[in-house]
Design a protein around this nucleic acid. Structure first.
Lengths: 223, 223
DNA sequence: AAGAATTGGATTGTTAACAATCCGTGTTAT
DNA sequence: ATAACACGGATTGTTAACAATCCAATTCTT
C-alpha cells in the first residue's frame, strides 16, 4: 500500500476538475497540496508532472503549477477530437454492448434523472460526464477510453470557463435517446445522435464571458 | 537555456522509439541514461515519468523503467484509434491544405523515394512515420496531432515487435495517392485511401513471432 | 549434483538541507 | 504623486547523502 500515493493525488485533482470544483487558473501550490494530502513535497511534484501530461495543468518554470486555462482554439480542437473519438467508441458500443452493459446505461440514466430531480447540480455534473465515460468502457478500447478521459477533463475546464448557465450540463434526454439507439443496434442513428449531442454541448459555450478562478484549494479537494 | 534538459531526454528517446532503434522491452536504467546525457539522475527520472505518460515506457516499482511491450490487444486498439483520429485529421487536411502544404507533402514524398532508392532503411522508417505526422500538422488540430504522435510511437513498437519483413514500412505509393486525393480536394477518396492504408499496415503484423529486445542503449540513442 | 538459503553489489526510492528565483512591500528619487 | 529600485519572505528547483529493494553469484544442505 505504498505505491498509489501520488496516484491518489492525481485522481483526487482529476476528480475535482471533472466535477468542476477546481476551476481553470487556480494555483496548485506544492506546499499547500503536500499539507492537504499529508505527504512529501516531491510526491506532489510528481503528481503535478503527471497532470501536465494530462494537459490539465500548466507548469510555469519557477512560478508553479496552475490548472490549465484552455483557449477558444483549444476548445474547438478538444470538441473536434471528442467527435472523432466518441464516434468510434459509440460504434464499438453498438456492436459489442451486452445486456449487462445496457442495464448499466439504464441505471446510469436513472441516477442522472434523480440528481436532476433533487436539483443536485454537483452530482448531476459528475454523472453527466460519467455517461460518456461509461460509454467508453462499453466500447472496450482502453486507448480511446484514456483519451476520452483526458478530453472530458478538458471539456469540464472549458465549460466551467466559457459555459453559459443551463448549457453546463448535458441534456439528459439526449443521453437516453443515444442509449435507445444502442440497445436497438441502430448504428447510424446512434452515431448521428452522439454527434448532434456533442455539437449541442459545444454550442453552449461562449467566449465572451470567461469566469475567473476563485475559491480555496482545500475545499475544492474535499471529498 | 536551462529548461529543455529533460525535454531533450524525452525527445531523444521518443525519436529512438519512433525510428525503431529502441525496441520494446529494453531496460532504461537511470544511471546509464544519466551518463549518456551527462546530467542528474533526477532529470532522467522525470523524463522517464513523462515517457510513461506517453504510454511508451512501463515503470515497474523498484525494478526500473522498460520500453513498453504492447500486447496484441494494444495493437488492435492502437490501430483502431489511429483510424478514428487520422480520419478526422485527413478531413481537415483536405479542407484546409494550402499550396505550401501540398508542396511540403510532395517534398516529403520525394525524400521517401530517395531513401528507398538508396536502400536506407533507417531513414525510410523515419520518413514513413513522418508522412503521417506531417499530415497531422496540416490538419491543424494540435490535440489530435499530439495523440497521433503517441499512437505512431506505439505503432513503431508494435511493428518492431510483430512486424514481418517488408510490412515494416508504409507502402510509399499509398502515401502518394493520398496526397493526390488531398490536392484534388476529393474528401471521400482521401479518407478511403487513408483507411485502407492503415488497414494494410495493421495487416502486416503477426503475433506469432515476437522479436525480443536486444542491443546497447548508448548506440540506440546516438543521434 | 540439484535446489534452497545467503550474501554482496548494483539499482531504485526517499529524505532533508541548500541554492535560485519570484512576488509583494516599502523606500527613495525625480 | 508616480515610477524605479531594493529588500524580505515565500515558493520553486537542485543536490547529495541515505535507506530500501532487487538481482545474481556463491555457499550450504540433502
Amino acid at each position: 500500500m505504498d505505491k498509489p500515493l501520488e496516484a491518489l493525488i492525481v485522481d483526487s485533482i482529476l476528480d475535482a476538475i471533472g466535477d468542476q470544483r477546481l476551476r481553470a487558473g487556480t494555483k496548485l501550490g506544492e506546499q499547500a497540496l503536500s499539507e492537504i494530502f499529508g505527504c512529501n513535497r516531491l510526491h506532489v511534484r510528481r503528481a503535478l508532472s503527471m497532470l501536465t501530461g494530462w494537459q490539465v495543468v500548466d507548469h510555469l518554470p519557477n512560478r508553479g503549477a496552475y490548472v490549465a486555462t484552455p483557449t477558444p482554439q483549444d476548445a474547438h480542437d478538444v470538441f473536434q477530437a471528442r467527435r472523432a473519438i466518441e464516434t468510434t467508441i459509440c460504434r464499438n458500443a453498438v456492436r459489442q454492448a451486452t445486456p449487462q452493459d445496457i442495464a448499466d446505461l439504464r441505471a446510469h440514466l436513472a441516477e442522472e434523472d434523480a440528481a436532476r430531480g433533487h436539483d443536485n447540480r454537483p452530482v448531476a455534473i459528475r454523472l453527466s460526464r460519467g455517461f460518456h465515460i461509461l460509454l467508453a468502457r462499453i466500447g472496450r478500447n482502453p486507448v480511446l477510453a484514456r483519451y476520452l478521459d483526458e478530453l472530458t477533463m478538458r471539456s469540464s475546464l472549458i465549460i466551467g470557463l466559457y459555459g453559459t448557465g443551463h448549457a453546463t450540463l448535458c441534456a439528459e434526454d439526449e443521453h437516453a435517446r443515444i442509449t435507445d439507439a444502442i440497445e436497438a443496434r441502430d448504428e447510424v442513428q446512434a452515431l448521428a445522435l452522439l454527434d448532434q449531442h456533442l455539437r449541442h454541448i459545444e454550442a453552449g459555450i461562449h467566449f465572451d464571458d470567461a469566469a475567473p478562478a476563485t475559491g480555496a484549494l482545500s475545499v475544492a479537494l474535499r471529498r
